[in-house]
Nucleic acid binder design. Structure first.
Lengths: 340, 340
DNA sequence: TTTAATTACGAAATCGTTTTCGTACTCTTC
DNA sequence: GAAGAGTACGAAAACGATTTCGTAATTAAA
């Protein structure tokens, strides 16, 4: 009596296994009276179908995977919230995989997922877009996947991104209007398209205002914490005159704050800074941080919706139109860190 | 040729399915030469075993579930990081379920997991300890689970917690020594044991210093955001003299900061505050927030280790000794928000 | 030389569902 | 009342792995 299964249910009911299965799935072949009996006993004996048997037979797992570079990061946590809100509604399960910003790790995870464990994948890429073969394998295997935020534009898959170029332009325009003379862009990696879009917006704004190229600084801080600390610290000593920093990610802005505190640089007097960020405490920082805030929850929601659409359409002929690419808007919050 | 499976592999190799399966599992029954051939072709044809067939037969899923109240919260994100670090090593998969602090939601999730989808569960309870039947059902079904942080002490399961009583005492002691006259404890719920342990520490310290009971305030702020805002705001108007606040969770401290900013209460002059928190920006707030910081990553790691130990021991006789309960220490960081 | 043990493999059952057929039986309809 | 349609169910074949047995062939022991 360890575990209830459909066979025991059938025996108990004096019905065949197939009849019970059909009854549980509300098949038209079974008459109402029988269905009721089956449902009643199933509930009474606390029957729950074995998910693996079901997945094996139906070739569908009711599970999706989320592959992200890191999780202890407000942006990604909020995205997961958005994803979960949809998955929960559709009774799907959510597997989480963390790449720790290591492209090989991402490849390994994606390759593993080729085995059919999930019906679809949501990816925020850690890749340097050098090696795309794992994405191609997904396409070839017919496993639906959707990129969010960190997309790979060489791959023909649905994407949910934000208006990074425009946001970068807007942030930089703001710094220019606040009378900065030198401008620095804090970059995570020059291999990531999101970051590069933000940088392109940054550069475009500076170009439009004809800023002296020698006053433009691109700081490749990288993903390693201690290293990026050192790189930023080195850049700030000596401190360029009227420096305006546009940080492409929250983490680097926080590091900059720490460094400024350490070596006594006053924000916003000596240095203005604005950053992409979903920090719930941005307004409470000393000084309050001006931010470009991505609609993280919506990104997760939209990405999940696209994925489930993709899963539903699986097998059916794809429309010839290009795959959907949803672009959401980030919001600019002007706070004290960029005060004149 | 859609998907590779063991049958096709066997045919290609002129071997039986069973031989191939054994070879892939490095069985002693198969000679080295055959194993090599099988492994070689498996790699060449990119064979990956179907996880559902395997799980169905072996009755094990190589998957664990993490059930948490919310994810957009530094503490839980860090815990997940810790959990993932162990799961990844053991090649386990991690399913995430979010209860949004709704006990019924938690029950529903746990009940669903009785179907064998996972080999074990890590739980940070959202329950009010009124209804424990779902935990009992886990025990009865023999599904291993471990509580972390928010444990239910009526249930005989392994737990990883922190020294909440002591930390609460320490935080309060600190406030007393900083010459506070009135003392407030911001609580999420009087049904949660973690919170109550912190409160007990708080009350014990006040008792030891013989603080006038009328100067002690327990604020039940609750989990609803707008409501808790209102409750805290109401409490702060009018502002008790020399108020020292001990916030049991980060979120309420942040709300308090926002309110103080809004109604112009100066921290730490008019109000001192210390909070349990894993905010990476605690030191950068205005003013820097004194915190009790839980070793979130370690909590996740230890809980995962206990769970896997439990999974390995499944079926074997349990030792008569009480189940393991690991207590980790929180760290006190004194910052400006409690300055004299 | 006979017996026992070991080696290396294969047939088939099994895990618990789902789904395709097949088939009694009843009910129309002309 | 014969043919066709519809109803309600059951037998059995999947799904793809794992595992239990059984057994030839070889080797070792007596």
């Amino acid at each position: 009596m360890e575990n209830m299964n459909i066979k025991k249910l059938a025996k108990e009911l004096n019905l065949s296994v197939s009849t019970v299965s059909k009854a549980l799935h509300d098949s038209y072949e079974i008459k109402a009276e029988t269905k009721e009996k089956v449902l009643a006993l199933a509930k009474q004996l606390n029957y729950q179908p074995n998910p693996f048997a079901s997945s094996l037979r139906r070739n569908s797992s009711k599970t999706i995977a989320v592959v992200i570079p890191e999780i202890a990061h407000n942006f990604f946590s909020l995205v997961i919230n958005g994803i979960e809100s949809i998955a929960e509604e559709l009774k799907y399960h959510v597997l989480i995989y963390i790449t720790h910003e290591i492209p090989e790790k991402e490849e390994q995870i994606i390759r593993h997922l080729l085995n059919g464990r999930v019906d679809g994948i949501l990816i925020s890429s850690s890749g340097t877009s050098n090696n795309n073969t794992h994405y191609h394998e997904l396409v070839q295997k017919g496993i639906p996947f959707v990129f969010f935020d960190r997309a790979n534009f060489e791959i023909d898959a649905p994407k949910v991104i934000t208006d990074d170029y425009q946001a970068g332009f807007q942030a930089t325009d703001h710094l220019i209007k606040r009378q900065c003379k030198h401008f620095a862009f804090l970059s995570l990696s020059n291999q990531m398209t999101v970051i590069n879009h933000r940088k392109d917006g940054f550069l475009a704004a500076l170009k439009q205002y004809q800023i002296e190229p020698s006053h433009v600084h691109i700081i490749e801080a990288g993903t390693d914490e201690t290293l990026s600390f050192q790189i930023i610290r080195d850049f700030l000593q000596p401190l360029p005159e009227s420096l305006g920093i546009f940080s492409s990610v929250e983490k680097l802005a926080i590091q900059t704050y720490h460094i400024c505190k350490e070596i006594n640089i006053l924000i916003p007097n000596q240095l203005k800074i604005i950053s992409f960020s979903n920090l719930p405490t941005a307004a409470l920082l000393n000084p309050a941080l001006s931010t470009l805030t991505q609609p993280a929850f919506s990104i997760g929601k939209e990405a999940a919706l696209l994925l489930f659409q993709s899963i539903r359409n699986k097998g059916k002929i794809q429309p010839i139109t290009t795959l959907p690419q949803i672009v959401l808007k980030s919001t600019l919050f002007i706070r004290e860190s960029t005060k004149m």
